[in-house]
Write a protein that binds this DNA or RNA. Structure first.
Length: 572
RNA sequence: GCGGCUGUAGCUCAGCGGAUUAGAGCAUCGGUCUACGGAACCGAGGGUCGGGGGUUCGAAUCCCUCCAGCCGCACCA
């Protein structure tokens, strides 16, 4: 189906084109009418005529028959009111459309999304939350849009720390080490290695030798290394399951994967004449970047000691993803502090010809998670907060809240529900503010059932579903038609029809919070409707109409939440 | 010093391809109350949109500048 927004846009565009081809009608939802088009003002400026004149001309040209009525307001706004028959038609089409009016992208693109990226032999903590949650939402949204998503979990599985980690593993014995790691006690493993490294010179020496052996590809060392990696990846998988994240072990393509490509990267850069030796390191100086002394800033590809830094790995990844994965779009869901690094990577990749102009490449940056003191979120004792611990606490709170209610749910059901609510609370809080901002982690507020929270949206959905439970019999929506005589019905209907543009408005700029804003607004429209318009006690056509609105609402909430990675239980 | 991000009601946040009276949630106050799940709905109070300039018929939105906070600026990722 063509979405309501698109129908209006097409009609308006045709009229605008006749005044000045390509002029944007600037169509958006409005409180004045159902939609408003603000494009007349800039168009008037462009053609050098009074806005009212142009508005009148547009109104004379535009064909909105059967679709909407239009009024000129103020200096030249076009306020559009959708006609009742058209609303009815669109809603009836929506009933039969599993995608709720969202078109399938054509052509489908290969979208590589780099997200989560924990470190091997290190606990996943709040620092990984945003990348994981935002990245997964973007992956789900892109898949729904019809694109082919290739998730890349760029785990930290290489580098000097692995010398000491492997030696520590040797000291512990493989069995004990695996037991420790598989319990998810990664941090104490890491800390123990670190402590020995700092205190014991012999251990330090062994560790250094081990790094060399690892890099040289020594078989036994590689085997020990892979134990660390495999145990960690298995642990990550548990965390992802607990968070309901779609990342799979196959998506883990860590830093080490690119090792074999690094020589080629250097060679290519050299052949392209981009490589410069500076202080013994091999660097590229992309134009436009300077250091604090206003001198050109290098991207260090190969260090003075001939080791490769993360810049080399990131360059290899760009090259690999475009060349071998045929990426049309590269997204890096990584914290904002790395902004300059990625700008330089992209700049160099473009210079080297690895990143064609038509490949969209974006650093999907995000702000920090802060504690109540507005500083980086830590435990009271100053330690990093483990993701698992965070989820557990949220789940306990949700469970406690459920205990206080008479729901008729069994204990196992309550526990399962509590995990769903906890995930919703944490994810929604993370997704619902604009990415770039820092946000304050306040479990109390995010898990509240009132306000702009995940649980509130789940509740709104459960309330709708409960109507159908109470209805008992199977109900067929195909007979429903929409008169929308009550204002609350009409408001709800308009909200339902706006799903496609809300989705597009969130996906195009990679802003999941806009989908959150839409869903919260929709939930409010529903509860207002629900309060004002009895459903089950209505009769005949009115009852069918209202039931149909309920069904569409349930589907919109459930679909919208699922695109954010949030479940919508039928009962709470 | 250069660069980036942020600064909107008491608190937490939308809005920022300029446009008709700046929105929401929480909190506060007042209503709805035999309610299809009140974990709700309706309403009220509360804002010089960090300060100051500029462009414009019109700026929270664009430009400049200043202030505050956070972050980055060569061999850790």
């Amino acid at each position: 189906m063509t979405s309501t927004y698109d129908v209006l846009l097409e009609r308006l565009q045709a009229a605008f084109d006749r005044v000045a081809p390509g002029a944007d009608p600037v169509l958006r939802q409005s409180e004045r009418g159902d939609y408003q088009a603000n494009g007349v003002m800039s168009l008037a400026k462009q053609v050098g005529r009074p806005p009212r004149d142009v508005a009148e001309e547009i109104v004379g040209l535009v064909n909105l028959d059967e679709v909407a009525t239009v009024e000129i307001a103020g200096p030249g706004f076009l306020n559009l009111t959708i006609s009742p028959p058209f609303l009815n038609t669109q809603l009836r089409t929506l009933l039969g459309d599993a995608r709720l009016g969202v078109a399938v992208a054509s052509p489908a693109k290969n979208v590589v999304i780099d997200y989560s990226a924990p470190n091997v032999a290190k606990e996943m903590h709040v620092g990984h939350l945003r990348s994981t949650v935002i990245g997964d939402a973007l992956a789900r949204m892109n898949r729904f849009a019809g694109h082919h998503v290739i998730a890349r979990n760029h785990v930290g599985d290489w580098g000097t720390p692995f010398g000491m980690l492997i030696e520590h593993l040797v000291d512990l014995g493989e069995d004990e080490a695996m037991a420790s790691l598989s319990m998810g006690d990664l941090d104490s493993f890491y800390r123990a290695a670190r402590t020995k490294f700092d205190a014991d010179d012999a251990f330090k020496e062994r560790s250094r030798a081990r790094v060399v052996a690892l890099q040289a590809g020594d078989g036994e060392t590689r085997r020990l290394w892979s134990i660390l990696v495999n145990e960690s990846v298995a642990y990550f998988a548990e965390v992802y399951t607990k968070l309901d994240i779609t990342l799979a072990p196959e998506d883990v393509v860590g830093e080490s994967y690119y090792n074999d490509m690094l020589e080629d990267v250097v060679r290519d850069l050299d052949q392209a004449g981009l490589l410069v030796e500076s202080d013994g390191a091999l660097c590229v100086f992309p134009p436009g970047f300077t250091n604090r002394d206003n001198e050109p800033l290098p991207l260090i590809v190969q260090k003075r000691d001939e080791g490769f830094g993360y810049a080399a790995t990131d360059l290899a990844a760009v090259r690999d993803r475009v060349r071998n994965l045929h990426a049309d779009e590269l997204l890096y869901v990584v914290g904002a502090p790395q902004g300059q690094h990625f700008e330089m990577i992209y700049a160099v990749a473009r210079l080297a010809g690895w990143l064609p102009e038509n490949v969209r490449c974006e650093h999907v940056a995000f702000g920090n998670v802060l504690g109540p003191d507005r500083k980086m979120f830590k435990t009271r004792s100053g330690e990093t907060v483990k993701l698992i611990g965070l989820l557990d606490e949220a789940t306990e709170r949700a469970h406690a809240a459920l205990e206080g209610r008479q729901s008729g749910l069994s204990e196992p059901e309550k526990l399962h529900l509590a995990t769903q609510i906890a995930r919703a609370a944490v994810k929604y809080a993370d997704l619902s503010t604009e990415r770039q901002r820092d946000y304050i982690f306040d479990l109390e507020r995010m898990i509240a059932f009132e306000g702009d929270t995940g649980p509130y949206l789940q509740y709104a959905h459960a309330r709708v579903r409960s109507i159908f439970r109470r209805l008992g019999t199977r109900w067929d929506s195909s007979a429903a038609s929409f008169a929308l005589e009550a204002p609350a019905e009409r408001e709800l209907a308009l909200g339902l029809l706006a799903f496609p543009e809300a989705f597009e408005l969130a996906l195009a700029p990679l802003q999941p919070h806009r989908l959150c804003v839409y869903l919260f607004d929709l939930a409010q429209r529903f509860t207002s409707f629900y309060d004002a318009c009895p459903v089950l006690s209505a009769e005949g056509a009115l009852r069918d109409e209202r039931l149909a609105l309920c069904e569409l609402t349930a589907r919109a909430l459930s679909l919208g939440l699922s695109l954010l990675g949030i479940e919508a239980p039928d009962q709470m």
